[in-house]
Design a protein around this nucleic acid. Structure first.
Lengths: 203, 203
DNA sequence: GCCGAAAATTTACACTGGAAACATGAGTGC
DNA sequence: GCACTCATGTTTCCAGTGTAAATTTTCGGC
């Protein structure tokens, strides 16, 4: 590959794959340092490039963060689908997706917060919105299965979608910020599935 | 010389009420500039004081933000209680509190985000935790009224509390970050009360 | 081989929060 | 009345941030 020069050779002037390398470095630093201590200069340094190099590809820090968030949403969508067994009924599938949602958020708290920070990301970016829609679509389809035929034609977001998203997202957010009472293992005492079971309609 | 605070006189060396003045300035700047563009130096400048003056009272920026968040939680608790009519039943009171929760979040988005940012605030601070508990208590009492006698003795956080808090907080957060489909007036098409009405148990 | 465009670099700037040394003055004990 | 104390603010400095502009290097098409 042109992107992988001889290991012993001097670092080439042109990186060859800077765009994706910066996103990956950003994702890695997000895990290590958290969102607050993340800096463009440090991401660039990790890739071995000057701190102004990202500008050519992303314009600004916000552009880079937007690209990172987009990749986050793609992985998020995959996490949602991960536990979905086609043989299960709509309720079981909902529970599985909800647990995937929360598991992803808790496994990658900094990335998750970035993904839902409208002032750090540019939600006008087509790539980001496409990735976010991909993730949202999983939840929306599950909501539709729970109430077939109730969505009005042309409706962008049903009440059931809003309700499900609110509860799952709220739980994940509160858990990540340390607001939910935690048991000895550090996890919240009530899992997200417990909440759904406590919710008569989907028990 | 004169201790009289004549309006035309030179600014005294000692402010006299810096602590609360800084918190109020911070709250005002939070409304105007948002959380991202908030700076300790600007808060200090608005009060007319050097940028290191806050250190004496708050230690660091995090300390100041913690104090601001605590004041936010007190106002938040007041907003929750605002629409509560004693004559109403538990369900009506829940709806009113939920709308108060969301209304506060949407009216003060930057403050609301600060209040739930564990990396910006110090949730080990007693004043902050007391204020946050005050706000949480309103919701917890409402949850208890919905299911009297179900809480196990000594239970810190019931499932019902977690469920209600998740849905309300998730809705407020998603709305603030512009993630919920909005109608022509900019508000989400489905209000928080619509979600509760859609939730069979509390329709 | 040459030349334009793309990709990185260097340099400079305004801004941030924090640390350290210093200045002020309000309050207290005598 | 007076001196001493010490909380409260100021000044100065520093490392670090993101961005802009001018410059250098390299790739790719002719």
């Amino acid at each position: 590959m042109s992107a992988s020069p001889s290991p012993a050779g001097p670092r080439p002037y042109h990186h060859g794959n800077l765009k994706t390398a910066l996103v990956e470095a950003g994702l890695a630093l997000l895990e290590e340092r958290g969102l607050g201590d993340l800096s463009l200069r440090e991401i660039a340094a990790r890739v071995g490039v000057s701190h102004t190099a990202p500008k050519n590809h992303f314009g600004s820090l916000k552009g880079l963060l937007t690209a990172i968030a987009a990749e986050g949403f793609r992985r998020h969508a995959a996490a949602l689908e991960a536990g979905l067994k086609p043989a299960d009924g709509p309720v079981e599938r909902l529970h599985a997706a909800a647990e995937g949602y929360v598991r992803f958020a808790r496994a990658h708290p900094a990335l998750f917060r970035l993904m839902f920070s409208a002032d750090l990301c540019d939600f006008g970016d087509p790539d980001l919105t496409a990735a976010a829609s991909e993730s949202y679509g999983v939840l929306a389809r599950l909501a539709g299965r729970l109430e077939p035929g109730t969505a009005e034609p042309g409706e962008r977001q049903t009440r059931m979608e809003t309700l499900l998203w609110s509860i799952v997202h709220g739980y994940a957010t509160l858990a990540n910020e340390g607001q939910l009472a935690a048991g000895p293992d550090g996890a919240p005492v009530h899992g997200i599935a417990d909440l759904f079971r406590h919710w008569p309609r989907f028990a």
